[in-house]
Computed example of a mutant assay.
Amino acid sequence: MAFGKVDTNGLMSAPNTDILPGRVGNLTAEQQHALDEFKDLIKAEGIFVPERHDDHYILRFLRARKFHIPNTHKMFVDCENWRKELQVDTLIDTFVFEEEEAVRNCYPRYYHNIDKAGRPIYIEHVGVIDIKTLFKVTDEERMTKQHVLSYEKLIRDRMPACSKLADRHIEQCCTILDLKGVSLRQFANAFGFIKRTSAIAQNYYPEMMGKMYVINAPMMFTSVWGMVKPLLDEVTVKKIVILGSNYQSTLLQDIDAANLPKVIGGTCECAGGCQTGEPGPWKDPRYMNTVA
Rank of each mutant, 00 (worst) to 15 (best):
D7K: 13
N9G: 14
L11I: 14
G25D: 02
G25N: 04
G25W: 02
T28M: 03
L35K: 03
K43T: 06
D54V: 06
D54C: 07
R60C: 02
K66N: 15
K74N: 13
K74V: 11
D78K: 09
W82R: 03
F97L: 04
V103A: 14
K116E: 11
K116S: 10
R119F: 01
I121S: 01
Y122P: 05
E124A: 05
H125E: 11
H125T: 08
R142P: 02
Q146C: 04
K153P: 01
K153C: 10
P160N: 10
A161K: 02
S163L: 04
K164H: 09
D167R: 15
H169S: 15
E171A: 15
L179W: 01
V182N: 10
V182C: 13
V182G: 10
A188D: 14
I194E: 12
R196H: 10
I200E: 10
Y205I: 08
K211P: 01
K211M: 11
Y213T: 00
V228S: 06
V228D: 06
P230V: 06
T236L: 00
I242S: 04
S245L: 00
N246E: 11
D254T: 00
P261C: 03
G266R: 04
C268G: 08
G277A: 15
G277T: 14
W282A: 00
K283C: 04
P285S: 07
V291N: 12
